[in-house]
């Protein structure tokens, strides 16, 4: 805990675990258990129980639970990983890195990542983000509406990325390459996606089914159109027809096998298109999410995924307690000032 942390005083007894009782082997309970054939260190329960392999430490001694005085989430630590940075140690991370046997290249990348993250958070703090309205997606020469979303795929990709992040270095490559597209998970709390693999698989499968259905539909359409050549033609069918003709020319014949092959090609193309669309959509979504979280950032969780191995970014505006302090001050002012009230409710004026 830093110097500014609130003092916590608690009195510990000389024997908080009451070992005096634990060690006492003459008490009634101990006597009865021993008389029934129990020996210290043994589990209770049937002798040679078939389910013994399922026993855990909780069957040997009482369950220990950490007393929680704050709302720290699972996996987060008090002071946490960000603490070093708070004290300016981040600047030394290069030296530490080298001392830890990392190559100069790695260290360099690490520092670049740090710098980028800082820049991003600075920009976010200072100017806020531009909001854009979704205006559809341009595919070829027409607008596509009603995109199917594909969170499963996105999340799968994301997961892979996260896995990479842990390694630390590859992330940087990604960061550099896709920088502007993905100011993303910076500050993004909650909803980032990384679904468990089976879950995503299930959704994928489902989607595949749907796609298949779509395809079937289209195929049917295609066949009917080839059967009745002289019907009214809309642009779409025309294009399809043209493509088919070209192919037919190439093959010389219109065999069913051909047709299927052709449809496969088309499938692949469509798939690729869809994939691209999804990618796009996902990015947009992330952007939106980020904006949203930015908006509500008063006491931000500031969980950022700076590519430093196992470290998180510096919390802007000083330590967690500084943020807290500010929050409390604002709260005090709240009754007088509607603006302050708004801030406490974590809403920035639009």
């Amino acid at each position: 805990m830093g110097l500014g942390a609130p003092k916590k005083r608690s009195k510990l007894s000389t024997d908080p675990n009451n070992t005096a009782w634990t060690k006492n082997t003459t008490n009634f309970g101990h006597r009865i258990l021993s008389s029934q054939g129990w020996q210290p260190g043994q589990y209770l329960g049937a002798k040679d129980a078939a389910h013994q392999e399922h026993y855990t430490a909780a069957n040997a001694s009482h369950i220990r639970v950490l007393l929680r005085e704050d709302n720290l989430g699972i996996g987060a630590q008090v002071g946490g990983n960000g603490r070093a940075e708070t004290f300016g140690l981040a600047t030394l991370s290069g030296i530490f890195g080298r001392l830890n046997g990392k190559t100069d290249g790695e260290v360099q990348k690490q520092q670049e990542g740090l710098r980028d993250a800082e820049l991003r958070s600075y920009q976010g703090m200072k100017y806020g983000h531009m909001n854009f309205v979704y205006g559809g997606l341009l595919v070829g020469d027409k607008m596509e509406e009603g995109l199917m979303k594909d969170l499963a795929r996105a999340s799968k990709k994301r997961k892979a990325e996260e896995g990479v992040e842990e390694e630390g270095q590859k992330t940087l490559k990604r960061k550099k390459g896709e920088e502007n597209l993905r100011a993303e998970a910076e500050d993004e709390e909650s909803a980032s996606s990384s679904s468990s693999s089976d879950e995503s698989e299930r959704t994928l499968k489902k989607k595949a089914k749907k796609e298949k259905k779509d395809r079937k539909e289209k195929k049917r359409q295609a066949t009917t159109s080839s059967d009745s050549d002289d019907e009214t033609e809309d642009a779409k069918r025309l294009r399809k027809e043209a493509r088919r003709k070209a192919k037919r020319d190439a093959a010389g014949q219109d065999s069913p096998a051909e047709k299927s092959k052709e449809s496969k090609d088309e499938k692949a193309r469509r798939k690729a298109e869809k994939h691209a669309r999804k990618e796009e959509k996902r990015k947009r979504k992330e952007e939106k999410r980020r904006l949203k979280s930015e908006k509500t950032s008063a006491n931000s969780t500031s969980a950022s995924n700076t590519p430093v191995t196992g470290n998180s970014t510096p919390l802007f505006g000083g330590s967690r307690h500084a943020v807290r302090q500010r929050y409390i001050q604002q709260k005090r002012l709240a009754s007088m000032d509607p603006q302050a009230l708004k801030e406490i409710l974590m809403l920035k004026a639009q």
Partner: peptide, 15 residues
């Protein structure tokens, strides 16, 4: 679909 956060949360209630 299951989603996780990329980083641990400092305050789970607020999150």
């Amino acid at each position: 679909e299951i989603f996780y956060t990329p980083e641990p949360e400092r305050d789970y209630v607020e999150a």
